Amino acid sequence: MHTGKSMTGGFDPAFYESALDAFTANVAVVDATGEILAVNDAWVQFVDFNDLKIANHGVGCNYLNFCDRLGTPGAAAVAAGLRALIAGGDGPFRHEYVMPLDTGSCWVKLSAVRVGHRDQPFLIVTHDDISIQRRAELGLREATARLLHAEDSERRRIARELHDSTAQHLAGAKLMLRRLDAKDPVSTGLVRDEVSGLLSSALDEIRSFAYLLHPPALEHLGLAAAIRQFATGFSRRGDVAVTIDIPDDFPRLSHATEIALYRVVQEALANVHSHSGSQQAVVRLRVAGEMVLLTVRDFGSGLPPRRDSIPGVGLEGMRLRLEFLKGHLSLRNAEPGLALEAWAPLLPEGED
């Protein structure tokens, strides 16, 4: 352990030296004024490895003043939390932030506890490098988002194949049936009518399937028209009255944004039908500054009591789509019912 001036107030550097140096995290002991009194070996190694120009490895400098001088949101949050802890606030204090270094950014998890006498407290401040975990999480999310976008592209291809090829074959077969000619017109007519009915059903099912995979209105008319069209069909199929609140002059957005918000509407209304017990839903779409806000609200049972339960695949898929676009998703009780809010950056058409 590396120390500066002698520490009083019952703190014995020799007694704690081996304990502090046993930590793999970077550890500093800070007094009530914010001055760093001691640091452990891991702290010294971190300073040396990153070639940080800090005199005496920081021992003797004021940690709080250093955070104030940085002027970043992360540093300001750390300084405020440590001051509150010194003043007697509940601990421990924890905060995650990005530390800019010459070798690249480093994700840090800071933890601080107050020790010592009430009239002369000390803080034990630890810094854990969590960059590997955060980069792995970010990589996983980006990979998952790319898979979702690949899924959208494949849906689009299948929808076109169904419409342009399979549906055309069925339509051709239906036309050919009209040319049937046999010795028994009555029997031929019955067969023709039955096959024609089956082909009509197949055509309807394929068109519905292709529409759900990739609605043509989304590509040709935009998000607002596609939501209106989907909501109309959903109300008819699901016995849920859907009210649409979208301005008539709502602009076209980038393809990635439109498909993401459209999938959110699909999943959210499916959840209303399956889980909420509500017979009504409201879909709102607004431009809010440099963001787009989509709200889907029902009037059913609201959020379940256990908020710590694992999110469903549909909800997590919506969240990942939006995070890939630098947006976010939130849920809140609307009393009655549940309100889902999806935020995405306002990117005009063509800016994918």
Rank of each mutant, 00 (worst) to 15 (best):
N333M: 08
H163Q: 15
P73D: 09
A159R: 03
E154Q: 15
S208C: 07
Y211Q: 07
A225E: 15
G300Q: 01
G314Q: 02
D245T: 05
S330D: 13
D352L: 01
S201E: 11
A55Y: 05
A150W: 10
G289L: 02
N62H: 09
R237E: 12
V98M: 13
A226W: 05
D31G: 06
A270M: 12
D21Q: 05
F46T: 07
F324L: 11
D90G: 11
D184Q: 09
S254Q: 04
G4I: 10
G34F: 00
S187L: 15
V29F: 04
R263S: 14
A288E: 14
G89D: 05
I310E: 12
A171H: 13
E267R: 07
H214A: 15
V282H: 01
M1P: 11
D298Y: 00
R306T: 10
P92A: 12
A224W: 01
M176E: 14
H273F: 13
R252F: 11
E142Y: 01
P345L: 03
V29C: 05
E341Q: 12
P336L: 05
D308A: 06
Y211F: 13
Y97C: 15
P336W: 08
A225R: 13
L293S: 09
E219Q: 12
A112E: 12
R321N: 06
T257Y: 00
D51I: 06
L162C: 05
A167K: 10
I130T: 03
L303V: 04
T126L: 08
V186K: 14
D184H: 11
V287D: 03
K5Q: 14
S301N: 05
N65I: 04
E161L: 15
A226D: 09
A225S: 14
H127D: 04
G139F: 01
N333C: 12
V47G: 02
L338R: 08
L140K: 06
A145P: 00
Q120C: 07
V242W: 06
V265P: 02
E35T: 15
T188M: 15
A136K: 05
T144A: 09
E35D: 15
S200L: 08
P100N: 11
G74M: 06
S208P: 01
G91R: 05
D164F: 11
L175Y: 15
G9Y: 07
E219Y: 06
A217F: 02
L285Y: 03
L320N: 11
S196I: 07
S330E: 10
R114M: 02
S111N: 10
D51H: 11
V296F: 03
A339K: 10
L293K: 07
G88R: 11
G4K: 10
D12W: 05
V282D: 07
D184E: 13
V44F: 00
Q120V: 03
A256K: 10
M318S: 13
V287M: 11
F11G: 04
G314L: 02
N271F: 00
R134D: 02
K5Y: 14
T103K: 09
K53L: 09
R114C: 02
S278V: 00
Q266R: 06
N26G: 13
T72P: 08
A76E: 15
I259M: 04
S201N: 08
V44S: 04
W43R: 01
D352A: 01
G233K: 00
S274G: 10
L213R: 03
L218S: 03
R178L: 15
F15Q: 08
F93K: 03
F122Q: 04
H275N: 06
F15D: 09
R179I: 12
H2Y: 14
S235D: 04
S301E: 09
V47P: 02
